[in-house]
Design a binder for these strands. Structure first.
Length: 346
DNA sequence: AAGCCGGGGGT
DNA sequence: ACCCCAGGCTT
């Protein structure tokens, strides 16, 4: 039996009942694919339902502000996805009259849509014979065919892309692509794959050479940078506080946070007031400041560990324009800030 | 080619 | 701790 047939047979018996598989509406499929980039199905699922409810059509998403979209995206991470999502919706609504691109080449023109996502939407919605290569496909192909070219190199992407395209069932690319991804997600998993009951065990190079744990090959793990954040949580008599939007590059662009003082190492109160960023705030006096957490909260991202202290600054009047406690929850904030807000509870 | 961008779950 | 997740963009 050919590779594709074995895979699709397995798929028909084992596939999950996922909401975006009940439709061929490219808007919904595109939305699901963006949400699922570097994100597990279980984590993305509630966001998919939320977006379908709040933004039922591409026009609803196009007419929303970037901030509204970020608010709905809050907690999911990789926030450029949300910003690009809204921009792409605007493009489809305003430049394409609401008609979603129906092929790989045109899908690629949408912000936030790269090779994988364009292939996924083109194949799933329009049956275009373009193979997807995601983390699952890298893993399945590297093991079954014993390919040890590192997957995070240009050469690796080319090699795996060609292999996937060769194997693709051109008569049903939608089913083949979803089958190989589902197989990687449920059966040929990174750790503890189910080789004992695998329909491909007989031909799987990695299994027969006992190399399962070594494939796929991925070069160099990334370094983790430690940073020290001090948030100034102003609390005024009128029950207002200060939130500022993050601009520029870095993490959490577009989200809101309390005034931030970043230090080179963990700061005491006396360290803190010497920082330039504190000179603008003459209300920061020791008798008015309470340290919320003596031990820094460590917020772990994939590439940074952020050690955080929240300094509660009690004052009569805010040193700058603020917002009412009751309005804080309306703004998009990083998970780190959301957790503090939930605990502190304004 | 390398670095950056989140948050959560599994081992 | 480390790895991975239906990746893409910027430098």
């Amino acid at each position: 039996m050919p590779f594709a047939k074995k895979l699709t047979s397995w798929y028909l018996e084992n596939k999950r009942d996922l909401p975006w598989r009940k439709t061929s509406d490219p808007y919904r499929v595109w939305l699901s694919e963006i949400i699922l980039q570097q994100t597990r199905v279980a984590q993305g699922m509630p966001y998919y339902f939320r977006f379908i409810n709040v933004f039922p059509t591409v026009f609803d998403l196009a007419n929303a502000s970037e901030e509204e979209v970020l608010k709905q995206w809050q907690g999911l991470g990789y926030y450029s996805r949300a910003r690009n999502l809204q921009a792409a919706a605007k493009f489809v609504a305003e430049e394409l009259g609401g008609k979603f691109p129906d092929n790989y080449r045109d899908l690629l023109k949408l912000k936030g849509v790269g090779d994988y996502t364009a292939s996924a939407v083109a194949s799933i919605c329009f049956n275009e014979p373009v193979a997807v290569v995601d983390g699952n496909v890298f893993r399945v192909l590297s093991r079954v065919f014993g390919i040890d070219t590192p997957i995070n190199t240009t050469q690796g992407k080319k090699k795996f892309g060609e292999k996937a395209q060769t194997l693709l069932d051109k008569k049903d690319p939608a089913e083949f692509n979803q089958a190989i991804m589902e197989f990687g997600a449920l059966h040929c998993t990174p750790r503890k794959p189910q080789c004992e009951i695998c329909p491909l065990a007989a031909e799987c190079v990695a299994f027969n050479q006992n190399r399962i744990s070594q494939l796929p090959v991925k070069l160099k793990k990334q370094k983790i940078k430690t940073r020290h954040f001090n948030y100034l949580v102003f609390v005024s008599k009128e029950e207002k506080t200060i939130l500022q939007q993050r601009k520029g590059k870095g993490i959490w662009k577009g989200l809101y946070e309390f005034p931030l003082v970043e230090t080179a190492s963990e700061a005491s109160f006396s360290n803190l007031v010497q920082e330039d960023a504190c000179q603008d705030y003459n209300v920061i006096k020791e008798e008015r400041v309470d340290l919320f957490n003596e031990t820094p909260i460590v917020h772990k991202l994939s590439h940074q560990h952020i050690h955080t202290k929240f300094w509660i600054v009690n004052c009569e009047e805010l040193p700058e324009e603020g917002i009412a406690f009751g309005d804080v929850e309306k703004l998009p904030v990083p998970a780190l800030i959301e957790k503090f807000i939930d605990t502190y509870g304004f």
